[in-house]
Design a protein around this nucleic acid. Sequence first.
DNA 1: TTTTTATAGTTATATTTTTCACATATAATG
DNA 2: CATTATATGTGAAAAATATAACTATAAAAA
Lengths: 219, 219
Amino acid sequence: MKNYNVKKNTICPLRKSLRRILLYRGSLLRLQTLGVKRVYSYTLGKETGVSAEQVRKDFSVYRIKGNQRGGYHVDKLIADLESIFYHNGSQNIIIMGRGNIGSSLANYSNFIQRKINIVASFDIDPSKQRLRSEIPVYTLDRLGEVVKRFEVKTAIIAVPDIAAQEVCKQLVELGVEGIINFAPVILKVPSHIIINNVNLSDEIESVIYCVSQPGPLST
Amino acid sequence: MKNYNVKKNTICPLRKSLRRILLYRGSLLRLQTLGVKRVYSYTLGKETGVSAEQVRKDFSVYRIKGNQRGGYHVDKLIADLESIFYHNGSQNIIIMGRGNIGSSLANYSNFIQRKINIVASFDIDPSKQRLRSEIPVYTLDRLGEVVKRFEVKTAIIAVPDIAAQEVCKQLVELGVEGIINFAPVILKVPSHIIINNVNLSDEIESVIYCVSQPGPLST
DNA sequence: TTTTTATAGTTATATTTTTCACATATAATG
DNA sequence: CATTATATGTGAAAAATATAACTATAAAAA
Ligand SMILES: NC(=O)c1ccc[n+]([C@@H]2O[C@H](COP(=O)([O-])OP(=O)(O)OC[C@H]3O[C@@H](n4cnc5c(N)ncnc54)[C@H](O)[C@@H]3O)[C@@H](O)[C@H]2O)c1
Ligand SMILES: NC(=O)c1ccc[n+]([C@@H]2O[C@H](COP(=O)([O-])OP(=O)(O)OC[C@H]3O[C@@H](n4cnc5c(N)ncnc54)[C@H](O)[C@@H]3O)[C@@H](O)[C@H]2O)c1
């Protein structure tokens, strides 16, 4: 109850906890395919790199119950975790920019398991449309139509940095509410829009930093 | 001084703060190419989506000084920020797996600006070696040689989930100390190894979750 | 030169997140 | 069926992180 205190994280409360919930689910889905029937907070923690206490605490926040002594049933736990997401079935999403990153994502076949359903991608470069792929590549003039037809609420921006803000603007105008942004640019959007910036350079550099630090190893 | 308290984050202290330092640097590099000479905490905050207080606080932690009233000189600030990283020049890194993600990263030309220097990539599939690219693709038998010659301390894992642990093991045995891991698997490594898991499914899903939440919008 | 003012730098406070500790429940065991 | 061992669930404490409030300083203005 106390934990639902909301001052800052108004839009997406309990961020950290939620991120771990996603991790747990990923792990559980893998365990499920391996035929595992039951897990303990300790098991799951080890699997996801989180402490057992943290796992239980996260579940506690979302009122997810296990069996005191018997751990958690994998199938039930997955169902419970998924009930946290308002997934009424899969969510339809689109990819803006069918270059390197855009194509990587479009080619990835495991999103389906996670109920992420990529319905289309868009590119200004007409040559990209010739890609013979599961996921169609359209030019931007069909954006409105697709967003409407598939009720797209979430989009991925994988266009060059310089084009990101303009693409973002178009998406927002069409009613898109959530954006995963790979361009290293802070997008200007109305406050109710959810932006998740994924900065791959930073991801790499933060490791380089840690590694090149003298740290506790050198004397 | 107080902030250097280290209990948990022993290996990589000041995580959050450091991540923002990377953001600031990215922004500053962009501003620099635009010819901007001077920034204020407020400017930089807006540019990176961080509050001005937070910007100043972060600088304070790392003892970075500006001019009281005159803000910060872009060139000097970049130099100061970079001095935090023990970048003695660029760091040589390698990519394991030249598939979708591996190739995206290999094709990205802006890493140089960030002093990230990708020297080679590796793939078991011999057909990948025919890629005519800036960054060579080798088979795994040359891994030891390359790691040694370029003093590689950091590697990117972009191989299928099932191969990730084995590849990781080889890297660690050759002396690699930091890994950016795109496979949705928790790698088992000795405690001194730095792992940064980048889970693209989770990045997407966390937005989908926020968007599909009823939230403060619906009455 | 003195005053004003905008901005950096710092200390204090508030919030969030993690860890700890232990009471509580229940599956397994004899 | 009672006992016991083992996990869960949670409230309280600790740690980490963010915000806010305040002070100091240097540039600009008067
Ligand atoms: N590739 C990487 O490893 C990497 C690393 C860090 C950051 N990024 C960032 O991710 C983003 C995408 O990178 P990438 O390597 O995939 O780029 P890319 O150049 O390979 O692809 C960009 C695609 O967007 C298309 N495009 C351009 N303007 C458009 C518009 N207005 N609408 C729709 N499509 C448009 C282009 O035709 C191209 O196909 C960039 O902002 C880049 O800075 C990429
Ligand atoms: N592509 C995406 O959008 C996406 C999204 C989420 C997660 N991931 C994860 O990222 C990882 C890479 O994804 P991808 O789409 O680039 O895969 P991919 O199949 O396109 O590429 C993997 C490459 O690794 C090579 N490989 C296989 N075993 C190897 C080994 N032992 N040593 C060296 N190379 C080896 C393969 O030949 C292939 O070229 C996977 O673990 C995947 O689950 C990818």
